[in-house]
Structure formats: C-alpha cells, structure tokens
Amino acid sequence: MEPLHKHARSLAPALQPVISCNALSRARTTIEDFVQSYFPLHGLVVPQDFWRFWDILVFVEAVIYEMDEENEALSTEGQTVPDVVLQGEEVLLAVLRERGLLSSAISEQLQEGRLYWQSERDLCARMLRANPAAASAQPPFSVEEVHAASLRKSFDYRVLNLLLYNLTDTTPDRALLDFLYVDEHLVDIGDDLVDYEDDIEKNSFNIFRAYVHIFGKDAPLHLAKRISEFEALHHEKLQQLPQAAQNAYHNRRKQASAVPGSEKWVFPKAILYEAEYRST
C-alpha cells in the first residue's frame, strides 16, 4: 500500500496535510497572545469571538511556523539558498484564496515573510563564518541590513491582524497598523534579548546577536539607543489612537506586566566568540 502523503497533492488545498504537531505547539503561544492583545483592539470579545475564527487563524499561524522550522533548519546549517519555496506556502495561499481572504495587503505581508526568511539565511550564514579574532575582521553586514530583517520579523502577526479585518469585514485602521508596527518591533527586540544564547546555538537571526557582530561589547549601548527611539515613536503613535484602543492596549500591557521583570530591558552578556561558545 502506498503512503497517503504521495496522494496529498491530488487533494483540494483545504484537505492537504501540511502541519506538524510541533508547529501547532509553537503556534499556540502566538495565537494566545494575538487573541488577548489584538481582539480587544478590534472590539471583539474573548473567548466568544475567538471560536468564530479559531480554525483559520490557527491554520495560518501553524503553517507559517511549519515554514519557519524548515527555514531554521537551513539557517542552522548555514545554507544561503536563494528563492527557497518552503513547504506549505502553496497550500496556505490556495486556502486563503478559496475563502476569499487573500487580500493584496496579506499577500504583501507574506512576501515580507519570504524576505525575512531569506535575510535570516543570509545574515546567519555570514555570522556563522565570521571570525572576530582575525586582525582584519570587519562586520559581516551593515546595521541597515539588520534593521530591515528585524522589522520584518513579526510579519505573521500582521498577517493574522489583516486576516481578522477580512474575517470581520472591516476596513484596516491605518493609524492602528502604524502603531502596532512599532509595538511589534519593540516586542521582537525584547524576545531577542531573552532568546540570545539559544539563537546563537541554533544560528537563528537575533537583533542583539547581529549588533554584537557589528559593535562588539558596545552592542547594548547601540541597541538601547534604538529602543529609546522606538519607545518615543511608540508613545507618539499611541496618543493618535482612539481612547478605546488606548484603553485596550493599556489593559493588555497591565496583564503582561504582572510577570516579574517584564517591564525591564535586560541585556545579556555579549558573546564575542560564538564558535567557542557553541563548542562549550
């Protein structure tokens, strides 16, 4: 008897198996945070409204995580293969298209995701080859390349948010999207500080890791400057939102800040010699 996966491509997109249990597990945390943080901004009630949309939201995020795992495997090996077509992308696009949910804005954010994964492969391969001990050692990339990659990292949240607008048949709020763009970047920086050592081991993209490759032991000072700039922009854009959206944001932040230390920026010790660190 032939294995079932050989016939998967002959099935309709909505019937094709493209998600692993591990991808679902990784998607769970993101979906929980997305629902608690973004649903109130849309005036939706948790958990009641979540049950209306849970299937498509979980499916989309899990497929994205499946592709992310495939890309991380390439990054770990230091592969820089350009224009990689990750498994599941074709099915994801087809399902959204069939349901009338594939807007041009969502397509644009999925393209941002492709560019992020490509940047991760490229930048991480360069970090893997870097030798800071060499007398003529130069940074393996520019800070502009690092910022471009980091700003694209939360493309999955942006896909889910735009998807929620489509599911509720409402027009995207430009001011809210601009605010969330800044907020998502700050959250990503915080996550990268927490995951710094793990990302060195896995050879994954991490803005602090990249800053260390550029600025060495002064990386915390330079990243603190960027954080300060984005916090000022964050405050400015938050004030431009309707009071209801501001209240929803503050309520969610109050919930999140209940975790000890969550309101502080904690910089890990910079690891200048990654190869040596990985070997130990």
Rank of each mutant, 00 (worst) to 15 (best):
Q118V: 06
P140V: 05
Q255I: 13
S204C: 12
E120P: 12
E66C: 04
V18D: 01
E108P: 00
C21N: 12
T30N: 12
A245L: 00
R99W: 10
H250V: 11
P172Q: 03
G43L: 04
E120I: 03
E69V: 07
L193T: 08
K153V: 04
S136A: 14
L193W: 04
L86W: 10
E108A: 11
Q138R: 15
H250N: 06
G100Y: 09
P140A: 07
H5C: 07
T76I: 04
L57C: 07
V95A: 02
E32F: 05
Q16A: 03
P40L: 03
Q246D: 02
Y249L: 09
E89G: 02
L115N: 09
A62H: 01
E236K: 08
I214F: 05
P172N: 06
E98F: 13
I19N: 02
E197T: 08
N251K: 12
R26L: 14
L221Q: 10
G216C: 08
R28S: 08
L110D: 02
F205G: 05
L160E: 00
L160D: 00
S75T: 11
L41M: 09
A256I: 07
Y196C: 13
I227V: 12
V143Y: 03
P260R: 08
V146E: 11
K225L: 10
R278M: 15
L11G: 04
P242I: 02
R129M: 13
L57E: 01
P139K: 06
L86Q: 07
S136M: 12
E70M: 04
R126L: 15
R209C: 10
A256D: 07
D188K: 10
K254C: 13
K217Q: 15
W265K: 04
E2C: 02
F155E: 00
Q48P: 01
S257I: 08
E70G: 10
L176H: 05
V187Q: 11
A105E: 09
E69Y: 06
E98W: 10
S104A: 14
Q79D: 13
Q109C: 10
L193R: 04
I189D: 13
K153I: 02
L176S: 05
P3G: 01
L128I: 13
H234K: 08
N206P: 10
Q36I: 01
T30F: 06
S228M: 02
L128E: 12
Y196R: 07
E90D: 14
A94D: 09
G216D: 06
A133R: 14
K202S: 14
L223F: 07
Y196F: 15
Q255W: 04
Y157M: 14
